[in-house]
């Protein structure tokens, strides 16, 4: 078991859902990201999804794109992100999942990526542009390193395809709630509950939901049916706004994490 599996096992025992904030590594700077993650546990985060900035993130909406461009503009490298995780690991054992484009992984070489990720203290990865057909061959390698390669499934994924994705998936299943890209939405799609129920019939893996969740009300609604709730763009907007308004981005982000986590943890009893 790695940190991700242990976390979900603990949460299950307590009957709790996981709250998973996404953070762009290095936005607005490396120190801020480190400070947020080191205290994220106390603020109520269970797992961190850590975005490796990429120049052409096709699955991401304007908020995360802008965040990535800003960080790359400062000259940050992949190695800076690994070093940052090493630093965090001196103080925190919160599970960390890398969110990284296959463009970057391919350039590094998959073997090198896993070795470096594991040695820095990263527990798993979501590689959005690496579909099952291409990911399959890397699963044994990841298993050997006890590294969770996380599978995505979407509202448009067929039952048969989902079987395959779920059998390959490790750690948790990432259910993409909406058709389209990351970013805040006014409301969650109507087919969310039914689809999650379907997935849960097919797998014992925890199901975490991301894309389009931006406030505590939505987070709570998703937590009623899912095992984990992922919020990204709304958090990155909060960071940008706090910097713009001269507020402390670490405190602002941690208080937003507390708020979202509070909503995820306190679902009504009858659910």
């Amino acid at each position: 078991m790695n940190r991700i599996n242990k976390k979900f096992a603990e949460l299950k025992k307590r009957g709790e859902r996981a709250f998973i904030p996404f953070l762009t590594a290095g936005d607005p700077d490396i120190e801020t990201t480190v400070d947020i993650i080191e205290s994220a546990d106390e603020a109520g985060a269970d797992i961190i999804e850590l975005g490796f900035p990429f120049s052409d993130p096709v699955a991401d909406g304007p908020t995360i794109q802008a965040s990535y461009s800003k960080v790359l503009g400062k000259g940050q490298k992949n190695e800076d992100v690994f070093r940052m995780v090493e630093k965090i690991r001196q103080k925190s054992s919160i599970p960390i999942v890398a969110m990284i484009s296959y463009s970057l992984v391919f350039k590094m070489g998959f073997e090198n990526f896993i070795n470096r990720a594991v040695s820095s203290g990263i527990d798993g990865a979501t590689i959005p542009d690496l579909p099952a057909e291409e990911a399959e061959k890397f699963v044994p390698d990841c298993d050997r390193h006890n590294f969770s390669l996380i599978s995505f499934t979407t509202p448009g994924t067929s039952f048969r395809r989902r079987e395959k994705l779920l059998s390959m998936g490790r750690g948790f299943v990432y259910y993409i709630a909406v058709r389209g890209i990351t970013g805040q939405r006014a409301s969650m799609p109507e087919d969310l509950n039914d689809n999650i129920e379907q997935i849960k019939k097919q797998t014992a893996l925890p199901v975490s939901v991301g894309f389009g969740i931006s406030n505590p009300t939505q987070a709570q609604a998703v937590a009623e049916v899912a095992d984990g709730v992922i919020v990204g763009s709304a958090i990155m907007s909060r960071i940008t706004d706090s910097v713009k308004n001269g507020k402390n981005p670490v405190n602002e982000t941690l208080s937003f994490i507390s708020e979202l986590s509070g909503a995820v943890k306190n679902i009504p009893e009858d659910k």
Binding site: V58, A59, Y102, P128, D129, L130, P131, A132, E133, E134, F152, T153, T154, G156, T157, S158, R161, L165, I176, R179, G180
Partner: peptide, 19 residues
Amino acid sequence: KGYYGEYGGRFVPETLIPA
């Protein structure tokens, strides 16, 4: 699978696979 030797393939988010 759309490969010309080593090149080609399909490296897209799961959302685009059905399309």
